[in-house]
């Protein structure tokens, strides 16, 4: 009896160390973003700053149109991207779940093969930029790489096959309902759990994506928050040159060190804040994905 208690204490101790290891970097980011600029320069980023300050956030919300603009781009891209991607993927997955569809295996293979082989960055980039000319358009943040993922299509197809009973669809067919109506009115409502899971993953993928912005976007008006963060991380000067409209007018300087981290905080915020609510679906999606799709 006593041995199990010691075991439990040791286990909890280990877990608290790991929890600290996972969360402490976030804590440092947050405290540093609330630190006074002079204090940062004196003491560095610290867990216990000598002077707290809201200057970084005041700057972001009052003076910088660019940061708010990039936040808006991120929201628009995430919404449009997730919706378009769900529409395309469910439309593709549903017919593939029909066992009697001629050429079903051929189309399934076309989807699946994209998981095994890809052309890589060079031809993809050349096609999108030189053939479709999507550089510096909103499409560049939505379309390349993210819109249809074979993995989710297979996940959806499996769900349609397993969880939407054929008998239900059959009876609808008897009643003379068209295939598309059956899909919209019967199959989709029955598939809400898997749609929610895939949608959630796509929201995260779109919100977190910076790669498309890095390679296809050079117009700063189209920067998403992640692309803006990326630019500022690799080039501090950018913040001074482009984001700071106001100081040239009123002469105040911007709290560069603090603002960098404050933007990172608001960039991570939507996901961190909603995480406790969607965590359950997320874990479910991950573990379903690991089992053969």
């Amino acid at each position: 009896m006593r041995r199990t208690r010691i075991e439990q204490v040791v286990i909890h101790f280990i877990f608290w160390l790991i929890v600290a290891f996972c969360l402490v970097p976030f804590l440092l980011l947050i405290t540093a973003s609330f630190t006074d600029e002079d204090a940062i320069i004196r003491e560095g980023y610290s867990f216990f700053p000598s002077e707290w300050s809201l200057d970084s956030y005041v700057f972001i919300f009052q003076k910088s149109g660019e940061i708010l603009n990039s936040y808006g781009i991120s929201i628009v891209v995430t919404l449009l991207g997730t919706i378009a991607s769900l529409v395309l993927m469910t439309l593709l997955a549903y017919p593939l779940s029909k066992k009697d569809l001629p050429l079903r295996n051929f189309f399934s293979f076309i989807v699946f093969f994209t998981m095994l082989f890809n052309g890589g960055l060079v031809p993809t980039y050349l096609i999108y930029s030189n053939v479709f000319h999507i550089t510096n358009t909103l499409l560049a943040l939505i379309v390349p790489g993210l819109l249809v993922s074979a993995f989710y299509v297979i996940l959806l197809r499996t769900f349609f096959t397993v969880s939407v009973p054929e008998a239900v669809l059959e009876s609808a067919n008897m009643d003379g309902a068209g295939e598309f109506r059956i899909f919209v009115q019967m199959a989709l409502p029955l598939s809400l759990p898997v749609l929610a899971t895939v949608g959630l993953f796509q929201v995260i993928n779109y919100w977190n994506d910076w790669f498309n912005g890095l390679i296809y976007i050079s117009d700063s008006r189209l920067y998403s928050i992640q692309v803006l963060l990326n630019t500022i991380l690799l080039n501090v000067q950018y913040l001074l040159d482009n984001v700071d409209y106001s100081s040239r007018v009123d002469g105040s300087s911007i709290p560069t060190q603090g603002v960098r981290l404050a933007i990172a905080v608001i960039g991570a915020l939507p996901i961190v804040l909603t995480y406790p609510f969607f965590q359950r679906f997320f874990v479910k999606g991950l573990t379903v994905g690991a089992v053969k799709g």
């Binding site: 439309l91 017919p95 052309g119 096609i127 390349p144 249809v148 074979a150 299509v153």
Partner: peptide
């Protein structure tokens, strides 16, 4: 229903595959 998704995969995946 399949068409838009397959067209996307052709553009996003298959043309680049041959593009190597």
């Amino acid at each position: 229903m399949i068409l838009p998704g397959i067209v996307y995969l052709l553009i996003n995946n298959y043309i680049p595959m041959f593009g190597i």
